[in-house]
Design a binder for these strands. Structure first.
Length: 464
RNA sequence: GGCUCGGUGGCAGAGUGGUUAUGUAGGGGCCUGCAAAGCCUUGCACAGCGGUUCGAUUCCGCUCCGAGCCUCCA
């Protein structure tokens, strides 16, 4: 069995994955803040983690995957105010859409999807602990984490506290003892949502929820904590400070999570995705134009830590690759898959286990598909088993190939009409009346029907 | 300014101290009445300059260019 290696942001090296408890692997991914439609960057995180979890499930008997829903936050409050609706209405709506959109990309629901608002009591508890351990202090209804008290602060993002203060561009709030202190709990003035706490009516700071929910759902320490690269600082750095501080484990950042797994950004046509440029690609829109598998494959076409340039060209290239793979599966459908449990090939497992090297894995899959043409019938059985198992693991090739390629499916003509035209054409061909035969083919092509003369007769498919 | 990470063939994108992935697009061919699909074949890529080495795209240094974080952000 191939051993899994992953790049650990904590230490910034590729490490062999050794679970805290090999009988139960536990992973937590920072999930979305649900106030708007998910964009392709959110999807990359979801797809990459989904694949990592699928891989872990092959390697370990029990895996628990937790990914939260952030359903209270300043942006949510703002969006709810603009919509003139209770924030819960907004968050439930976009949580549902998020899950539907991710499902379209072949992302399985996490085992646990905790909502921040359902853990407020535990967040208050964690904050109390941090006050007890003297890593936090209260001031004017705020509770702040005192960063200078946490010696290892910066260990994840490799940031120097002093330089951070120098490089800071924001004004320091008056209630902070130190410019780098961050909020655990803050007051919520009347119209804003909030909860009662020992420090008055308020709401949690952003970082607190993940420390709380990961501990409550998985226990400490757990194995992998993941998220987008931008979360490394400050979000994940602060989570470590909170979780290790609360448990008096300030010297041991791994007491919280052992491995930190961060995915790179998606850029669009070479530019950063941003509201001001107006180039945000929403999954909700993309799935109207492309099958989820095409989008998933495109997201996996680059290594997860590299920037991914999202362009129409790259979607098309991956679409072409997927179509060819489906043709391979269609070819193999003429034979039974081997019943001898032909599984994901070692070469592909090795690639995936090597820090989730999906481009390498896909290259190996292509090589496998290339081997179909000159394989014996017996070999084809094995190849079929391997391709299907691989497709299942990485979340592609799950559709019926005929349907994917459009064989026997048409929206413009009913199949009887098509069959009749094909019959007429074949009669014309028999009579060597190629002018007529070609005109019938052109007629069908105009109706988005393409025909193929195979040795088993003429078949047709709808094309876009 | 600080900290990361990159610059690979038309495009996408792995990887390696010496044997030049993979896909996609293009060229040529086979097959076909012609197509379509498939198959075969082809392309001497590794930002620049130095250094280490028998040998560097791969290691080291410098230069140039790009991206991300340092403020909400996947």
């Amino acid at each position: 069995m191939a051993t899994l290696k992953i790049q650990n942001t904590l230490g910034n090296t590729k490490e062999e994955f050794i679970p805290v408890d090999s009988s139960h692997v536990r992973i937590y991914a920072c999930g979305p803040t649900v106030y708007d439609y998910a964009h392709i960057g959110n999807a990359r995180m979801a797809v990459v983690n989904d694949l990592l979890v699928r891989l872990l499930r092959r390697l370990y008997s029990k895996v628990t995957y937790v990914s939260n829903i952030t359903d209270i936050d300043d942006k949510i409050i703002e969006a709810a105010q603009n919509a003139e609706a209770p924030f819960q209405e907004l968050t439930r709506k976009f949580e549902k859409i998020y899950n539907e959109d991710m499902s379209a990309l072949g992302v399985f629901l996490p085992d646990v999807q905790p909502r921040a608002t359902e853990y407020i009591g535990d967040m208050i508890g964690l904050t109390k602990k941090l006050i007890e351990t003297e890593y936090a202090y209260e001031k004017d209804g705020h509770v702040l984490f005192h960063v200078p008290s946490f010696k290892k602060y910066g260990c994840l993002s490799k940031r120097d506290r002093e330089e951070q203060i120098l490089g800071s561009r924001v004004e320091v709030a008056p209630y902070k003892k130190d410019p780098t202190d961050f909020v655990l709990w803050k007051p919520s003035p009347d119209p804003l949502p909030g909860w009662d706490s020992p420090w008055g009516f308020g709401r949690p700071g952003w970082h607190l929820e993940c420390s709380t929910m990961s501990e409550k759902t998985l226990g400490l320490p757990f194995d992998i904590h993941s998220g987008g690269m931008d979360l490394t600082f400050p979000h994940h750095e602060n989570e470590i400070a909170q979780s290790c501080g609360a448990h008096n484990k300030a010297d041991d950042p791994r007491y919280f999570a052992k491995y930190w797994f961060h995915n790179g950004f998606v850029i669009v046509d070479g530019e950063k995705m941003s509201k001001s440029i107006g180039n945000i690609k929403l999954v909700h829109d993309l799935i109207n134009n492309y099958h989820g598998e095409v989008l998933r494959l495109t997201l996996l076409s680059a290594h997860y830590r590299q920037p991914l340039n999202w362009t129409v060209n790259s979607i098309n290239q991956n679409n072409a690759m997927l179509e060819r793979l489906y043709r391979g599966v269609k070819e193999l459908n003429k034979i039974e898959a081997s019943s001898k449990g032909y599984d994901v090939p070692d070469s592909i497992m090795e690639a995936l286990c090597d820090d989730l090297n999906t481009p390498k894995a896909l290259a190996e899959l292509n090589l496998l598909a290339n081997s179909i043409s000159d394989a014996s019938a017996d070999e084809k059985k094995k190849i079929k088993g391997k391709i299907l198992a691989t497709g299942k693991l990485i979340g592609i090739l799950q559709e019926d190939p005929d349907k994917w390629l459009g064989y026997g499916y048409s929206e413009s003509l009913d199949s009887k009409t098509i069959e009749n035209l094909i019959k007429k054409r074949n009669e014309a061909r028999r009579d060597k009346n190629f002018v007529l035969a070609d005109s019938i083919r052109d007629e069908l092509k105009n109706k988005k029907i393409e025909i193929e003369d195979t040795k088993d007769g003429t078949i047709w498919r709808s094309i876009e």
